[in-house]
């Protein structure tokens, strides 16, 4: 644990430039991952009620005609 935290400190936190750029890169990644995660939770929670769950019925019907 101690060695890991020392490694973490030496690689990321020690230089402010590295620290700040890690924060911004992390924010970018977090933003996308968070959106995807919430979207996934939302579709799971509301399964069967959303438009994308019923869309296939009507698109297929159009193609069949």
């Amino acid at each position: 644990m101690a060695s890991f935290s020392t490694t973490l400190y030496n690689t990321v936190f020690k230089r402010n430039s590295v620290y700040v750029s890690t924060i911004f890169a992390g924010a970018f990644a977090f933003n996308m991952a968070f959106d995807v995660g919430i979207e996934r939770f939302w579709s799971h929670w509301n399964q069967g009620k959303l438009w994308k769950d019923i869309r296939h019925k009507y698109v297929e019907a159009e193609d069949a005609e």
């Binding site: 939302w42 929670w45 509301n46 009620k49 959303l50 438009w51 769950d53 019923i54």
Partner: peptide, 12 residues
């Protein structure tokens, strides 16, 4: 079906 805090409309 949309009453809850996390509930969407029932689109059908």
């Amino acid at each position: 079906s949309s009453s809850g805090w996390l509930d969407s409309f029932d689109h059908s």
